[in-house]
Design a protein around this nucleic acid. Sequence first.
DNA 1: TATTGCATTAGAGTGCACTTCATCGTTTAC
DNA 2: GTAAACGATGAAGTGCACTCTAATGCAATA
Lengths: 120, 120
Amino acid sequence: MTEAMGVTAHTLRYYEKIGLLPSIERDASGYRRYTEEDLNWLKFITKLRESNMPIRDILQYGALIKEGNHTRAARKELLQQHKEYIEQQMALLQVGLEIVNEKIMYYQEKEKGDQGLCQT
Amino acid sequence: MTEAMGVTAHTLRYYEKIGLLPSIERDASGYRRYTEEDLNWLKFITKLRESNMPIRDILQYGALIKEGNHTRAARKELLQQHKEYIEQQMALLQVGLEIVNEKIMYYQEKEKGDQGLCQT
DNA sequence: TATTGCATTAGAGTGCACTTCATCGTTTAC
DNA sequence: GTAAACGATGAAGTGCACTCTAATGCAATA
């Protein structure tokens, strides 16, 4: 039930413990009740994590938000750095993709060659 | 001198130890002498690593090569799986990039707003 | 009522890919 | 000749992000 967001219950508790999520409200029997706001924040940080933003950076981003509006420039800076990181990653992946594609094509050629021999 | 390939000397020794590189020839005083072939393989696996192919998969790929031509289909399969992985990663990064861009634009709007107020 | 199954906790463990340490030998520049 | 700079070694350490364990509690179903 808890882990419908693409993260396990364990991970949710871990995030809460390290402060990536705020202290989540509990119901009468001590179970966590995530508010809409919690879920939105979770969704957001999940996307950041999926793009490999380190937890410590997300923590810092959250801390800046808590500090108030005068930290907006710093927040923007943080995101801009992550943007650059993403772009670099994509470039590296692109190179990898090209190399892998080349090799796959090479093996495909070989297959064709083999078949040619068999048919002769 | 050794680490002109974008990896440290330490990493080279580590790769050799775990079998990602073959046993490298030594000169008279025990220093490693990398052949052209070694360097080509290193270049290749570096690109695979930069696209986040796990070391264990690269090890397996190398093992398949050693086994001979009858493993070509398996090698192709391995690369195809990695290709899919890369494509998924790129998609996730793309989503992250869009979200980060949105936020950056939001902060940029805020800045403009602030400036507007100051000038009034 | 008994069982099944999800919830809770603190803390330890995992897996990956290096990275550093301590100690030693070799080469090179002055 | 000597010191800096690089190369060697095995073993231990690091950092990240979970992930699992063990023990226990609550809730819904047969």
